[in-house]
């Protein structure tokens, strides 16, 4: 398998006044053609930045990102736009359909920028919408559709240029679990058809649907491998925090135990004279 995505020491820093936010900190990874990968992380872990760079919406501060062998970091904005059009299909959490256009119009957008002739565009848009099961709603507006249906339109739009890479950013985030599973199933189907699918999510149960998981924390990769390995969902940060918590608890317990012992002794000391007094009173 040849590499579709190669990250070599990719960094993305944001400068906020004097502080530097390291959204991505020397991240290296490789995703091959035909893979299904979930990039997982809590908010602030750098997964959104990672997605923006993979999606050619942003370029790294340092390091190289090669998409299909081409160095994206050195591209002009116009070239990046062309790459997005040819190579990438985006599926967003909020669907991001254009509300004024009907489904056909929405699905045609990427083809307009690729200057596909009108007749061809119509035929292709129709075919893709039929493929996602919306062949009967070609003229509907997005707001006439349910969330699941809208997400299917967005998948159709992502597919329409037949890009090698589908980038899904929390695609199930706004859906109930049933439709979420459906959408996930569609992404899996696309993967079986040969598209490389990258799923960005914070939800471990969703991420587990992907055979491979890349876990980000504080801008670094903390796990990259089999989704079914027990370490896949082990977070070093959480672990450290947990250990910290446990240690504190142990310390507290120890302290408490020590305190209790002291108190007991003190009580014993108090009790002895009292007993004596009591005895005296009784007698």
């Amino acid at each position: 398998m040849s590499a579709l995505i190669e990250f070599d020491e990719v960094c993305k820093y944001y400068y906020m006044g004097d502080t530097v936010v390291k959204a991505l900190d020397h991240v290296s990874m490789r995703i091959d053609k035909g893979e299904f990968v979930a990039i997982v992380g809590q908010s602030g872990s750098g997964k959104s930045t990672c997605m923006n760079i993979i999606g050619c919406l942003d370029v790294p501060t340092a390091g190289t990102y090669k998409l299909n062998g081409r160095d994206v970091g050195r591209m002009r904005r116009g070239e990046l736009a062309d790459i997005r059009n040819e190579m990438l299909g985006f599926v967003f959490q909020q669907y991001n359909l254009l509300p004024k256009l009907n489904l056909m119009g929405n699905v045609e957008v990427p083809m307009i920028y690729a200057r596909v002739p009108r007749a061809q565009r119509h035929a292709r848009a129709k075919a893709v919408l039929e493929q996602v099961g919306l062949g009967d709603k070609l003229k509907s507006k997005p707001n006439q559709l349910s969330g699941g249906q809208q997400q299917r339109v967005s998948i159709a739009r992502a597919l329409v240029r037949n890009p090698p890479l589908i980038l899904a950013d929390e695609p199930t985030g706004a859906l109930d679990s049933h439709t979420g599973r459906e959408v996930l199933g569609m992404l899996q189907d696309l993967n079986r058809e040969g598209h490389t699918v990258i799923l960005i999510t914070h939800d471990n149960s969703i991420a587990m649907q992907a055979p491979r998981i890349i876990r980000l924390e504080d801008g670094r990769i903390v796990y990259d491998g089999d989704a079914h390995s027990p370490e896949a969902f082990v977070s070093p940060v959480l672990e450290a925090a947990f250990e910290d918590f446990q240690r504190k608890e142990r310390e507290e317990e120890a302290e408490k135990a020590a305190g209790a012992a002291k108190a007991q002794e003190a009580r014993k000391a108090e009790k002895a004279p009292a007993q004596e007094g009591g005895d005296a009173a009784c007698s």
Binding site: R77, D82, R84, F90, N96, L98, V109, Y113, A114
Partner: peptide, 15 residues
């Protein structure tokens, strides 16, 4: 937002 979507779909700045 529409502009953002269009850009993600591959619209160039000139477009």
């Amino acid at each position: 937002r529409e502009i953002g979507i269009r850009k993600a779909m591959g619209a160039r700045e000139t477009t």
